[in-house]
């Protein structure tokens, strides 16, 4: 009876080892799949789009003829959108972060604002598009302009910027703050001279990362009514516009495969811009780390 128990125990252990090995293999597979797919996606797009990429493509306007079409106007639209979005979202986001980190008391209002911000981060981007359409395009009469697009994107990235700014302000050592107070500085002076300069690289990292998300956003821009065929450069912030991802979407939705090649080339440009923005963010984060250490 007892012998049998031990034998059973041993066979269980052998089984367990086999199961653990199998499980490890499955896990390794699960970890590898996303990377393989990312690689396939990049290679597939590169093969489709690289032959189309060239100076003419970057400096040409969209056209009815796939081989002549370029991305100058969408590229300009996206660039201006990003600058305006940063100009609107940056002060609002930093202001909100300063309030929540340095001024807010632990009360119901603060808790409400915090829950609200984390909820906003989960609202689908297309809902922001509907907000922009109802509020900026119609109610505030901005029309389907760059300004309306940038205002919409600003509201969308605001939660991300607030969270990033708060995190990097929390990394500023407390003794530096206290040293400023000890020297007679008031709260605002301490924030302006100590907290903000030290956390700025971290805040900028967060801002650049949010903007790199915003530049790839298509749905809210389409919803507020970006045009899909723009053969001119915007001359003011009230100008109608198109953006790079909108142009890519437009090319994908056409049945002719010539336009799909354009879409792939546009995707390469978009991804390169995003990679550049992300590298800048990583470099800034690295500088922040060094400064605080």
């Amino acid at each position: 009876m007892r012998k049998k128990g031990i034998a059973q125990d041993l066979s269980f252990r052998a089984m367990d080892e086999k199961i653990e090995k199998a499980f490890k293999a499955i896990m390794a597979l699960a970890v590898m799949v996303p990377f393989v797919i990312l690689a396939v996606l990049l290679i597939d797009t590169a093969v489709d789009g690289l032959p189309r990429l060239g100076w003419d493509f970057l400096t040409g306007f969209p056209s009815r003829f796939a081989a002549r079409a370029g991305i100058l106007s969408p590229l300009a639209g996206s660039a201006i959108l990003m600058i305006l979005t940063a100009a609107i979202a940056l002060p609002l986001g930093i202001g909100a972060a300063i309030y929540l980190e340095e001024y807010a008391g632990k009360n119901a209002v603060t808790a409400f604002i915090e829950i609200n911000i984390s909820n906003l981060a989960g609202v689908p981007s297309i809902i922001y598009g509907l907000l922009g359409l109802g509020l900026f395009v119609r109610f505030m009469n901005m029309g389907r302009s760059l300004l309306a697009g940038a205002a919409t994107l600003s509201l969308m990235v605001l939660p991300m910027i607030i969270m990033a700014a708060r995190e990097s302000m929390r990394m500023v050592p407390g003794d530096l703050r206290e040293a400023a107070y000890a020297l007679g500085a008031d709260k605002w002076t301490t924030i302006r001279k100590i907290v903000l300069p030290l956390s700025l690289p971290g805040i900028l990292t967060g801002v650049i990362l949010s903007l790199s998300r915003a530049i790839g956003e298509t749905a809210p821009i389409i919803t507020i009514g970006a045009l899909t065929y723009v053969a001119f450069l915007p001359d003011s912030v009230m100008s109608p516009f198109t953006a790079l991802p909108v142009q890519i979407f437009n090319w994908i939705s056409r049945p002719q495969s010539d336009f799909h090649v354009n879409a792939a080339a546009g995707i390469i440009v978009l991804l390169v811009i995003m990679i550049l923005m992300n590298s800048l963010a990583i470099a800034l984060r690295y500088r922040l780390q060094r400064r605080i250490d």
């Binding site: 609002l92 909100a96 001024y103 807010a104 409400f112 609200n116 909820n119 509907l130 359409l133 509201l155």
Partner: peptide, 22 residues
């Protein structure tokens, strides 16, 4: 501090805006 509070309250206004427009 009032101006900073207004920035933070902006997020509540965004939620209110979404709900009202919809």
């Amino acid at each position: 501090s009032a101006a900073l509070f207004a920035c933070a309250a902006m997020s509540v206004a965004v939620t209110a805006g979404i709900i009202m427009v919809l």
